[in-house]
Design a binder for these strands. Structure first.
Length: 427
RNA sequence: GGAGAUGUGGCUGAGUGGCUGAAAGCGGCAGUUUGCUAAAUUGUUGAGGAUCAAAAGUCCUCCACAGGUUCGAAUCCUGUCAUCUCCGCCA
């Protein structure tokens, strides 16, 4: 959420930012009018409240002085105020709600160094690691590999649940678990993150805090229950909200969390895409990285977080490239986003395996996450960052495809072998 | 699932209708004192919003949350949520 006063004072640069994001600006067109109306009705409501408060005090004084008749006269006078009061409070609440709706639906302002462009074609590759391996046989994709090895079963998952679900078996399930443990060990042991295991369901307030609501309701799986919980689409939701509604001490910052969770996405708008295999599932596993930090450090923390995610791919020996998303391709709440894309031989291309975003104070303002600098300073909004470190399902795919052998077996990357009971090869 | 209790500021904890944005203590901050540490002592110390060029000042809102009663509510009433205790059930 953008700051009200910031929008008021920078209306044109906000408009430019929306245009660069291919975002409609009609909400913004209503801003000035709504802003002055809001201030007007707040002023009116305050004035009435002030009159009521002072009159009530007078009544109290008169009662105490024993002047009953005067008090009764005053009472009659004040009771006439009630209607007017509730009328203006209603107007005020309405204006506040409308302003909040407007602000809640405006995306974040991209950082100055984000490439301006309409879509993903304007993304800029900033580095590349590893060389795609040349195979001297015809490569198979992860579905063919996994099913012939008996470690992947999509048909039965469809029977049990539905499309876009999968079952991993035997060494396949073990590989998934090995990847999770490997990632968590590196992030906690070497990168200084604190492991956390959050709830897999969250309330609507938390979803608002991390921008899933109000705009992305349809991408969530909602629990049919009067409590209105939803399954988490990413651990970013419960973990970033960890300190919502709090004022942290300066020496509490920065906070670095890593969390392994399943993620649930309805992906309502993507029925035609990636229908085969594990690329796009309604349920997938992810190891997430979340940081809460000082505003002045968030850009640097963003670089480090991205590097932390890349480390996993390097250790696994998986070729990847990192791109910075253009203004037209980046997410709603981000100031700047790096996507890490892993090489998939079967598709002969790089595919997203991690998305690392600096959200600035956008989420912190939504969830009222603040900190106080030493010396009793005014509370300020913290900055929040998040990134996948990594999407485990897609890493599983990348391992199968990049480490496949001519006979259809899978060589297990060295770093994973200790997590797989020393197993060197599947198949 | 059943029965009961409780929800006050960073923390502990007073406060059963008006002078309470809220006693007291702790913590924090600033000063004084002490050779240092520690201690003592004085003062100060919540958040959001409106007004204002800005600051100061003034005003409004907030005692879990949402409603209600009243001229007036932290205080009375209703609902929700959370926590605790006991019983049941379960991993």
């Amino acid at each position: 959420m953008l700051d009200l006063i910031f929008v008021r004072e920078n209306l044109e640069s906000v408009r430019t930012a929306l245009n660069n994001r291919n975002f409609p600006t009609e909400l913004l067109d209503k801003f000035a009018e709504l802003d002055s109306e809001r201030r007007r009705v707040i002023g009116e409501a305050d004035k009435i409240n002030q009159l009521r408060n002072s009159s009530s005090k007078e009544i109290g004084a008169l009662m105490q002085a024993g002047k009953r008749e005067e008090a009764e006269a005053k009472k009659a006078e004040v009771s006439g105020l009630k209607e007017k009061q509730s009328e203006f409070e209603k107007l005020r609440d309405e204006a506040e709600t409308q302003m909040k709706y407007l602000l809640a639906n405006l995306p974040n302002i991209p950082a100055a160094d984000v490439p301006v462009g309409a879509d993903e074609t304007a993304n800029v590759e900033i580095r590349k690691w590893g060389e795609p391996k040349q195979f001297d046989f015809e490569v198979k994709d992860h579905v063919d590999l996994g099913e012939s090895l008996g470690i992947l079963d999509t048909e039965r998952a469809t029977k049990i649940t539905g499309s876009r679900f999968a079952i991993l078996n035997g060494a396949g399930a073990r590989l998934e678990r090995a990847l999770v443990n490997f990632m968590l060990d590196v992030h906690t042991g070497e990168h200084g993150y604190t492991e956390t295991l959050p709830p897999f369901m969250v309330n609507r307030k938390s979803l608002f805090g991390t921008n899933q609501l109000p705009k992305f309701e349809s991408e969530l799986f909602h629990i049919k229950d009067e409590r209105e919980f939803a399954l988490i689409p990413t651990a970013e939701v419960p973990v970033t909200n960890y300190h919502s509604e709090e004022i942290l001490e300066a020496n509490d910052l920065p906070k670095h969390f890593t969390a392994y969770t399943p993620c649930f996405r309805s992906e309502a708008g993507s029925y035609g895409r990636d229908t085969r295999g594990l690329i796009r599932q309604h349920q997938f596993e992810k190891v997430e990285l979340v940081k809460i930090c000082f505003p002045e450090n968030s850009a640097e923390e963003h670089e480090k977080l991205t590097a932390n995610a890349e480390t996993i791919l390097q250790r696994l020996g998986l070729p990847y490239r990192t791109v910075v998303l253009s203004t037209g391709d980046m997410g709603f709440g981000a100031v700047k986003t790096y996507d890490i894309e892993v090489w998939l031989p079967s598709q002969n291309t790089y595919r997203e395996i991690s998305s690392c975003s600096n959200c600035g104070d956008f989420q912190a303002r939504r969830m009222n996450l603040r900190f106080r600098r030493a010396g009793g300073a005014k509370p300020e909004f913290a900055h929040t960052l998040n990134g996948s470190g990594l999407a485990v399902g897609r890493t599983w795919i990348a391992v199968l495809e990049n480490y496949q052998q001519a006979d259809g077996s899978i060589l297990i990357p060295e770093v994973l072998r200790p997590y797989m009971n020393g197993l060197e090869k599947i198949g």
